[in-house]
Design a protein around this nucleic acid. Structure first.
Lengths: 133, 133
DNA sequence: CCTAGTCCTTCCCGTAACAGGAAGGTCAAC
DNA sequence: GTTGACCTTCCTGTTACGGGAAGGACTAGG
C-alpha cells in the first residue's frame, strides 16, 4: 500500500502519516522506488492512533497506548490509569470552559448590541471584577 | 513603572508582556537606560488583555477588542458579535469534549483495571466502532 | 570604590501537531 | 513521449509564550 491508500483507509492526511513516521510512531517499509510500503499492521496502527487522537489523547499518550497494545503482558490497570488520567484532564477542561462560557454569556446578555457605543462587555473586561480571577 | 512592577500588578509574566510589545499589542515608552517605562494606561491595557485571555479570547481577538475599546465611536453590536462568535466556539468545544468524555468513560468503566491483560479500552481503540466517528 | 545581588535588556531555541508549498523523482495511461 | 497523478524530502509557519544565555543597570553594604 502506498501512502495515499492508507491515508484514505485510515482517514488521516498523508502529511500526518509522514509525521507519525518521523516521530517514530510507525515504521513502514520502503519499496525500491523509495515509496513507503505500508503493511496491514501499519494501517491498523494508524487507525488505532487516529481513534485515540479523536478521543483527545496526545501523541505521547498514543505512543504509550500503542506500547501497551503491543505488550501482551500488560496489566489492564496500566491502560485504565492512563485513560483515567486523561479523562480527568478532559473533565477539568470542560469545567474551565464552562466557567468562561458562563461569564461571557453574562456579559453578552448584558450588551444591547445596537449602534450605540455603551458596552458592558468592554467595561467588564476593563474593570477588575470577581469575574475573571 | 518597570516591567517587574507591571507584571506584578497585571498578574502577567514579564515574558508575556515583552511578547505583547513584540506583536504590537502595547507600546510602552523607554527610559534613558533602555528600560521599558510603562504608564498607567499600559497597565490598564495589560489587565484588559489578561482578562480577555482568561475568557479564552485569542490574541488576535484581544487586539480587536482593544481596538474597539479605544474607539469611542464603536457600536456595541460589533463587540457583541465578536463575543458571540467566541461564545459559540466555546460551546462547540465543550460539546466536543463531552462526547470524548462520554466515550472514554464508557471504555474506562468497562475495563477491569486489574493485572490481567484483557482491556476493553485497547480493543475499543483497535476496532472500528461507532464510537469515534 | 568595589562588590554582590537583583533587576533589566536582547536574542535564540523549544514547544504540539501538524499544514502549506517548493523542487523534483516515479509511474500509469494515452 | 508527454501529460497528470502520485510520491519524495526539505523548509517555513502556526499559537502564545517559557527557558535560558550573555551582558548592561541599579541599589545596598562594607
Amino acid at each position: 500500500m502506498n501512502i495515499g491508500d492508507v491515508a484514505a483507509r485510515a482517514g488521516l492526511p498523508a502529511k500526518t502519516i509522514r509525521y507519525y513516521e518521523d516521530i517514530g510512531l510507525i515504521r513502514p517499509l520502503r519499496s525500491d522506488n523509495g515509496y513507503r510500503a505500508f503493511r496491514e499492521s501499519d494501517l491498523h496502527k494508524l487507525a488505532f492512533i487516529g481513534r485515540a487522537r479523536g478521543l483527545g489523547f496526545s501523541i505521547e499518550e498514543c505512543r504509550r497506548l500503542l506500547a501497551l497494545y503491543d505488550d501482551r503482558q500488560r496489566a489492564s490497570s496500566d491502560v485504565k490509569a492512563l485513560a483515567q488520567t486523561h479523562l480527568t484532564q478532559i473533565a477539568a477542561k470542560i469545567t474551565e470552559l464552562r466557567a468562561m462560557e458562563a461569564t461571557l454569556q453574562t456579559l453578552v446578555s448584558a450588551c444591547a448590541g445596537d449602534d450605540r457605543p455603551d458596552c458592558p462587555i468592554l467595561t467588564g473586561l476593563a474593570e477588575a471584577k470577581d469575574c475573571c480571577g
